[in-house]
Nucleic acid binder design. Structure first.
Lengths: 143, 143
DNA sequence: TATCAACATACTGTTATAATAGGGAAACGG
DNA sequence: CCGTTTCCCTATTATAACAGTATGTTGATA
C-alpha cells in the first residue's frame, strides 16, 4: 500500500478546511465529526501539518485550525510525500536510503525510476483546491 | 511502500530466467547466487510463480525452473499485482475490499482512481522481455 | 538406489500501522 | 482574574505484514 491513513486523512482534513473556512479557525472536533475520524488520531496528523506550516493552530475558545495559505497553493504530492515519509514505490529509491550496491547492473532500476516519476507527476498535478471541486474538473487523466 | 521484496525479487527471478535459459531448467541455487538473494526465501516467491503458471518446475537431478511462456508475453503489471496481492495505492481501491460507505461523498476517490489507473498503465506497458534489454529501449516515459 | 532439487510446513525477529490514554499549556470570554 | 475551551505533548498498545530461517518430504534422474 503506497498511501496509509496518514496521507489519506491529511488530505481529507485539508479539503475540509478549504471547504468550511471563511478565514476562521475550525475546531478539530468538528472536522473529526464530519469526516468520521477519531479526534485523537487526527491530532497526530494535524500536528505534522502544523510543523510543515501547511496549517496554523490557535488555542482557547474560538480557536482551532486553518490553512496557512490558499488551497490552490498546496500541492497534493507534497502533502502525501511528507505525511508518508516518501512516495517511492520501492525501497531502493527512497531519498534517505543508501544506494544499492547492485545499481550498476540492475535490470529493474530504470523501470522503478520510471514508475516513481509517473507517480510524482500525477500527484504533483493536483492542489487541494482541485479536490474541493465536486464536478471533478481537472481530472483529465482519462485520455 | 507500494512494492515489497516479493514483487521486486519475483521480477529479478523472471529476468534472470529469461536471460539464462536456453529452454533448460535453471536451478534456484544458481539464481539465488547470481541475484544475491537467500535461496530459501526465493523458494517462497517462486512457489507463487508456479501456482500462477508463469514458471514451471522440475524436480530431481537436472531439474530447476524455467519460464512457461516467452518473456515478451509476461506483463510486469500482472506479476507485481499478484505477488503483492494488489497494486492499489489506497485500501479503498483494493479489489477484495468492501466499498467505502463514504464513497458517494468522498472528495478524494476520483483522485485515487486516477492514481491507480496511472500506475496500472505504466506497469502494464512493460513485459519481462523489455527489462532484459540492457540498452533501456522502451523507456519512453520521459517526454 | 543414491543423489539432487523442487516442494511443503512451521516458526521467528523486526517494523509500521492505527490507533488509545491521560494530562498540560495557552488563549479567550465573561 | 478565573474557568472553560481548545490545541499541544508524551507515552503505550494491539494487530499485522514483512523478511527471512529451519527442517523435513517428495519425486525425477543418472
Amino acid at each position: 500500500m503506497l498511501i496509509s491513513t496518514k496521507g489519506r486523512y491529511a488530505l481529507r482534513v485539508l479539503i475540509d478546511m478549504a471547504e468550511h473556512s471563511g478565514n476562521e479557525y475550525i475546531k478539530l472536533k468538528d472536522i473529526a465529526e464530519r469526516q468520521e475520524i477519531s479526534e485523537k488520531y487526527l491530532e497526530s496528523i494535524v500536528k505534522q501539518l502544523v510543523i510543515r506550516n501547511i496549517v496554523v493552530g490557535l488555542r482557547g475558545k474560538g480557536g482551532g485550525y486553518k490553512l496557512s495559505k490558499p488551497a490552490d497553493e498546496i500541492v497534493v504530492g507534497d502533502v502525501l510525500r511528507f505525511m508518508e515519509g516518501s512516495l517511492a514505490p520501492v525501497a531502493c529509491l527512497e531519498e534517505s536510503g543508501a544506494t544499492c550496491p547492485r545499481a550498476a547492473e540492475c535490470r529493474t532500476l530504470t523501470f522503478w525510476r520510471g514508475l516513481d516519476e509517473t507517480i510524482r507527476r500525477y500527484t504533483d498535478s493536483f492542489t487541494v483546491a482541485d479536490l474541493t471541486r465536486t464536478d471533478n474538473a481537472g481530472f483529465d487523466y482519462i485520455i
